[in-house]
Design a binder for these strands. Structure first.
Lengths: 124, 124
DNA sequence: CTAAAGTACAACCAAATGGTTGTAGAAAGC
DNA sequence: GCTTTCTACAACCATTTGGTTGTACTTTAG
């Protein structure tokens, strides 16, 4: 009943596109060498239409770009989007580092008002 | 009819878990500060059971770990898995670099037998 | 011109996803 | 003890997903 849940973030699309082994394989292939959709399709044990849909999912996520060349559609990887996803994950790691650093500094202040949590996370 | 498609790779699970804004937000929260499931649930406009399911998806992907503490279940982030995903994406970027380098070396050999593809990819 | 190759897209289907409510059990509070 | 809190899980539902086949259009080949 909630109609306004049209989030479908860019990150949603990117990670969803990567959450399938066939699609990750397509990304690997077209990152190394651009290929037509039918050339790609020949490499998988599924119909042409199925591969076409996988490419469409990757395209919506901007992980690949299609470029019409004569009668065929050439697919090549878009590394900019891969980097965007990488950076997002790296930010999570930074959040963790920031938190650890924060805990350490709080502990070293040792004002010790009335805290009883975060006892076993200060090592490492 | 094809029953043997029980791939469900680790990467499938990780990226699928990350393909939802609520779940990414949960990861951000528990990376910064471990929290009980009900504390997490209080932060979202959905039922406790729904949040519980999201945590379960993150747990299956090993992006978070649950630790029973008394009657509550404490969720904290597992950075090792985030790093694993990051590395996977970085490998895609490396594949691209390798390919560009390869094309360059082929061109610089300038033996030029009978190639007619890969004409416009040597710049950048 | 005609045939084949490459693509697009609709219709259909089974299974998974993301949400709900309801019931039940274990731990803590009074 | 009894009640509340926190959790687990089943059942249900609508929508999405990932696959199929079939039809039609455009471009190249002969």
């Amino acid at each position: 009943m909630v109609v306004e849940s049209v989030v479908d973030d860019e990150a949603d699309r990117i990670f969803h596109a990567l959450a399938d082994a066939t699609r990750r394989d397509i990304v690997v292939r077209v990152v190394q060498q651009e290929q037509s959709v039918s050339t790609l399709a020949a490499g998988y044990a599924m119909s042409f239409a199925a591969v076409q849909k996988h490419v469409a999912v990757l395209e919506r996520a901007a992980l690949v770009v299609k470029e019409r060349r004569g009668r065929e559609q050439i697919v090549h990887g878009n590394l900019e989007t891969v980097r965007r996803a990488t950076r997002l994950l790296q930010r999570y790691e930074e959040l963790w580092r920031y938190r650890v650093q924060n805990i350490s500094s709080i502990l070293s202040e040792d004002r010790e008002e009335d805290r009883e949590e975060d006892r076993e996370t200060e090592n490492e």
